[in-house]
């Protein structure tokens, strides 16, 4: 069973983190000992615990419609200053993103049809996507100053890797259930 711990950083004095563990009802101060009244190691005047902070509603099950979600961040900034004749080529990530979503849906669909039970197929697809941790951040900043006749080309390789991985999963599934 998973235990959920919550952290809180308090900005006064040093940065302190408190943990409350609801399953054992043990409270820990940031000085690593059980303090009550006042902290023994004088980290704070009185130890601060936020019992209500941990969320007892947290569960591991997720809604079925979450399988097409994917954490993705893509930020691109190209700044051209005091320059002339600069060519900029950027890759349009949108096509890739929708292709990625399509692949994920296809995987979920194959599972949904073959496994039959919705609960089970959701659990499996969820687990598959978790295994191939599909989280990515792509941040680019390009600054061109006092330049003439330059060509800039940017490329999003993360997305290509993701798509490749998803296609591989899909193909493996398809082979496993004997469609090919």
């Amino acid at each position: 069973m998973t235990t959920y711990r919550s952290t809180r950083v308090i900005s006064d004095k040093k940065s302190k983190t408190f943990f409350t563990d609801r399953t054992t009802h043990r409270k820990k101060c940031s000085c690593e000992s059980d303090c009550d009244g006042s902290c023994r190691n004088s980290f704070s005047v009185s130890p601060q615990f936020d019992v209500n902070f941990s969320n007892s509603d947290a569960t591991i099950s997720q809604d079925a419609d979450q399988f097409s979600f994917m954490a993705q961040e893509s930020a691109e900034l190209i700044w051209v200053k005091e320059s002339c004749n600069i060519k900029v080529h950027t890759t349009d990530t949108q096509a890739g993103v929708s292709l990625q979503a399509g692949l994920q849906l296809a995987i979920a669909l194959v599972l949904r049809i073959t496994v039959g039970s919705a609960d089970k197929s959701d659990a499996i697809s969820q687990e598959l996507f978790q295994q191939f941790e599909l989280k990515q951040t792509n941040k680019q900043k390009i600054f061109i100053c006092n330049t003439k006749d330059a060509t800039v080309r940017t490329k999003d390789t993360d997305l290509a890797v993701n798509i490749q991985a998803l296609l591989q999963i899909l193909l493996a599934l398809i082979v496993l259930v004997d469609i090919f």
Binding site: H89, T91, A95, G96, L99, G102, L103, A106, L109, V110, I113, R153, K155, T157, A160, I163, Q164, L167, L170, L171, I174, I179, F180
Partner: peptide, 24 residues
């Protein structure tokens, strides 16, 4: 149906990869 779907997606992925390759 599934076979067609997968083949279509595969084609799209190939296209996507080729596009990236040409650009580089």
């Amino acid at each position: 149906m599934l076979k067609e779907m997968v083949e279509d997606l595969k084609k799209q992925v190939d296209q996507f990869n080729n596009k990236n390759k040409i650009e580089t």
